[in-house]
Nucleic acid binder design. Structure first.
Length: 813
DNA sequence: TTAAACTTTTAT
DNA sequence: TAAAAGTTTAAC
């Protein structure tokens, strides 16, 4: 028998084996429909074809081959397997992250009438039968929604048992290509003489003038080529629809559909700029590193023109017929960069990220899979762009390499796009370039130790100076009562000066919403989430208290829930409140806000960033989003409202991240000729990180951090694995975590820290415990992960421990 | 993820 | 005591 190992879109430990129908033309990477369990039909991807049926049980047969050609390449399956192994999750989970929804077939259950004619039926059964008979068949989900929720399943079950109805599973392709209406001449009329005769005939009657006109317009648009097919809209722009209609009815014209791209047509406009001597030197060094098959780190200060270098490298690959993957940490950045790259490469640039709908993503997927020569040669995207079916990938660029948003946390696979890209590049034999003004400690270490090539670009483009950074002591400001809401005197004057000088301001506060929490002035009570251990954030927009962990919201009462006092005050400043305070402080100033709440809609980024770029907005207030490599010409001042929150995190990466964030946002200031300035407000102005931000000392921070990491055994000197346990009962999770930790110690898996609870111990009524494993960064990593795997599966043998959900986060961020 | 098998809670 | 609600488990 021929067998197919099928990856199913579920968190199963491994692919399941099905029997292939005889003579089935099946290949690795094709989609197949298979039955799982009693009735459910799923589509999966064939990972392997072989002749070795598993020992246990009977084999089910593949129900249907969906594709004639594979939709997934063997290289991708290799990548999925690597990812599932390295990040310790199921192949199905990787597949779920990788495949666009348009390729995941929707399996639907339909209810049809059965072979047995029902006799005695009750009212509800009658209802079901009527619905099924009237419509031929009904969606199971629709039927369930018209029946009372509690008994729907039961009613249907009896009816199935009686043979009155049955359930049929279907699998349907959800991808719909976009089409447009076209007009062409019918076969008989694709001849000048015939057409001329027709025109003459029609001209005889005055009533047919419109038709003659339509034919002339068609002739003109077709430029004499009568085989041509013209977009209907081009014709109806000039002549009436009814004339076309008549000609179609007479069989002179034909209506046709043509598949078109969902993505508009763009034209390359300009030649890339010549590189400066410094850029040229960096470019040559990068080429050299690529020549040695090494990933290369391009460490270039903000505004050093890294993009120009990327452009030149991309151009080369395109000339060479290759594909390029350009990874960015944020969707907002793709919005900015796409316009820039399209100026050079036009339609060859494609975008791919989570804001695209299923059809758009599938279209990009197919274009990459088919290696189309005229579209999607350069893919610009967030981390999911990693999963496209590249065939001729020659270059990967990971821009803003240090960004933590390259790491996915939930759901599995908990992968780091930068690290996965490095694996991919070596497998695909593609070059890979990591770019950053503030490289991560790990990457810098790899460059220092010769694992990566290292190229530095210290010169800002046009020789501009780095911004002046000033730290304002909030303790002083408070003492002298010179704080106005969240703003210190120096920040206020700087904003006024910048705005009156016709330049723009960016304000950064890493908290969205209006106020992080409410507090009763009498008893100190803080309203918290009912199902999570966090306070509720007040959102003025919608006048609502919201939990940022589970999303649940409630109306804020007018009085304290604990003591009934009416004196409840809002504590702290989120972006929403900062924007409002600013409007009160500087009336007439135009503001905009860039955070999760203002960018929910698909086009929101484009709109907000567009208005800021056009100068319609003078002050842009935002969360992390404003720090990540946005380029604006006229920003003269960047204000960091509260630096302490970032410095006080007790995670080993907190200092590194705080520095990166501040250095990056500072880099937004001062682009068009004038030196920019940065004001950081902090209660701890002497913190060493702030001092280093003032000095723009990236390598100093990294050197210091490397010392600390070496002393305290943190990455890159060890590898970390975080094990998270979750359950409704706090005690059970604790007990299980203690047991697992003890077991890991006994098995000598590595250095075991914990168990303890993560910063937020309860989310959605589930209590969390975590164990951190520190593993040596050597060849024992894989066997140690195997030890961890078996220790976790051992929990199954205990009826209590097995109830606890466990997940693993490799290289946590 | 799903659904059947199994267990615990709740209402009458 | 039955029904409802919640848990657990296996899937080729």
């Amino acid at each position: 028998v021929r067998c197919a190992d099928v990856i199913l879109p579920l968190a199963l430990p491994r692919p399941l084996t099905y029997r292939l129908p005889e003579n089935a033309l099946c290949a690795v990477g094709m989609r197949v429909a298979v039955q799982l369990g009693a009735g459910k039909v799923y589509t999966g991807i064939v990972a392997r074809i072989h002749q070795h049926p598993p020992d246990s049980g009977t084999l089910k047969e593949v129900l249907e081959l969906v594709d004639e050609e594979p939709v997934v390449t063997p290289q991708q399956i290799a990548m999925w397997e690597w990812m599932a192994g390295y990040y310790m999750c199921g192949l199905g989970e990787v597949m779920n992250a990788a495949l666009p929804a348009g390729l995941r077939l929707a399996a639907e259950s339909w209810v049809e009438h059965g072979d047995v004619v029902p006799e005695a039926t009750d009212a509800r059964q009658r209802m079901v039968l009527d619905a099924v008979l009237n419509n031929g068949r009904m969606r199971l989900a629709d039927l369930q929604s018209i029946l009372p929720v509690s008994s729907a399943r039961k009613i249907l079950r009896t009816m199935i048992a009686n043979g009155w109805i049955r359930i049929q599973e279907t699998v349907e392709d959800t991808y719909k290509p976009k089409e447009r209406n076209m007009i062409g001449l019918a076969a008989d009329y694709r001849n000048e003489e015939v057409l001329e005769a027709l025109v003459n005939e029609l001209e005889a009657s005055r009533r047919n003038q419109k038709q003659v006109e339509a034919l002339l317009v068609f002739h003109q648009l077709a430029q004499g080529n009568l085989e041509r097919v013209i977009p209907e809209k081009d014709i109806t722009d000039k002549v009436s629809e009814s004339a076309i209609q008549t000609l179609v009815r007479k069989g002179v014209l034909e209506r046709l559909k043509e598949v078109v791209s969902r993505f508009g047509v763009h034209q390359a406009l300009i030649e890339p700029r010549e590189l400066s001597p410094a850029q040229e030197a960096a470019y040559q060094q990068i080429r050299q590193g690529f020549g040695q098959q090494l990933p290369v780190l391009l460490h270039g200060v903000t505004s050093s023109g890294k993009t120009e270098i990327y452009v030149k490298l991309i151009q080369e690959v395109l000339d060479n017929g290759g594909q390029v993957l350009y990874l960015l940490p944020e969707i907002a950045l793709t919005t900015q960069l796409i316009e820039r790259l399209r100026k050079y490469f036009g339609d060859l640039v494609g975008v791919y990220h989570s804001r695209f709908n299923a059809n758009e993503r599938t279209e990009v997927w197919n274009a990459v899979l088919n290696d189309t020569p005229d579209r999607h040669r350069v893919i610009l995207g967030a981390r999911s762009a990693l999963f496209l079916p590249y065939r001729t990938l020659q270059l990967v660029i990971v821009d803003e390499e240090h960004e933590s948003s390259f790491k996915q946390y939930d759901p599995a696979p908990r992968y780091h796009a930068r690290d996965a890209a490095i694996w991919m590049a070596s497998r695909w034999k593609a070059a890979i370039l990591l770019g950053s003004a503030t490289p991560s400690v790990e990457t810098y270490w790899n460059a220092q130790t010769g694992k990566y090539g290292y190229v530095q670009l210290n010169e800002r483009f046009g020789g501009m100076e780095l911004p002046r950074v000033e730290v304002v002591d909030l303790r002083e400001q408070r003492k002298w009562k010179s704080l106005k809401g969240p703003f210190s005197q120096p920040l206020i004057s700087a904003m006024e000066e910048t705005i009156s000088g016709g330049r723009q301001v960016i304000l950064f506060q890493n908290r969205r919403g209006f106020s992080p929490f409410l507090q009763c002035e009498d008893c100190g009570h803080v309203p918290g989430c009912h199902q999570c251990d966090v306070s509720l954030t007040y959102h003025k927009q919608g006048h609502i208290l919201r939990c940022h962990y589970c999303g649940i919201s409630e109306a804020p009462g007018t009085e304290c829930k604990a003591c009934g006092s009416a004196r409840v005050r809002m504590v702290g400043y989120g972006t929403e409140r900062i924007e409002e305070e600013l409007e009160l402080l500087l009336p007439g100033v135009t503001t905009a806000r860039l955070d999760l709440d203002t960018t929910r809609k698909k086009k929101a980024y484009q709109q907000i960033l567009g208005e800021f770029a056009d100068g319609k907005v003078q002050v842009l207030v935002g969360t992390q989003m404003v720090t990540k490599g946005l380029d604006f010409e006229k920003v003269g001042l960047v204000g960091i409202i509260g630096a302490d929150a970032m410095l006080n995190f007790q995670d080993f990466r907190a200092h590194e991240r705080a520095f990166q964030l501040m250095a990056q946002v500072a880099g937004r200031a001062g682009r068009s000729g004038m030196r920019g300035s940065v004001i950081i407000q902090a209660y701890k102005p002497d913190h060493w990180i702030l001092q280093r931000v003032m000095q723009h000392d990236t390598t100093g921070v990294i050197a210091q951090e490397l010392l600390i990491r070496k002393n305290y055994r943190y990455p890159p000197f060890v590898r970390m694995v975080r094990v998270v346990l979750r359950h409704k009962q706090a005690e059970l999770v604790k007990e299980t975590a203690r047991h697992l930790a003890a077991r890991l110690t006994a098995l000598d898996a590595g250095e075991v820290l914990g168990p303890n609870h993560p910063p937020v111990a309860r989310v959605m009524d589930q209590y969390h415990q975590q164990i951190i494993l520190k593993l040596p960064a050597d060849h024992t990593l894989a066997p140690r992960k195997q030890v961890l795997r078996s220790a976790i599966s051992e929990l199954q043998y205990n009826t209590q421990y097995r109830k606890v959900r466990v997940h693993v986060d490799v290289d946590p961020y």
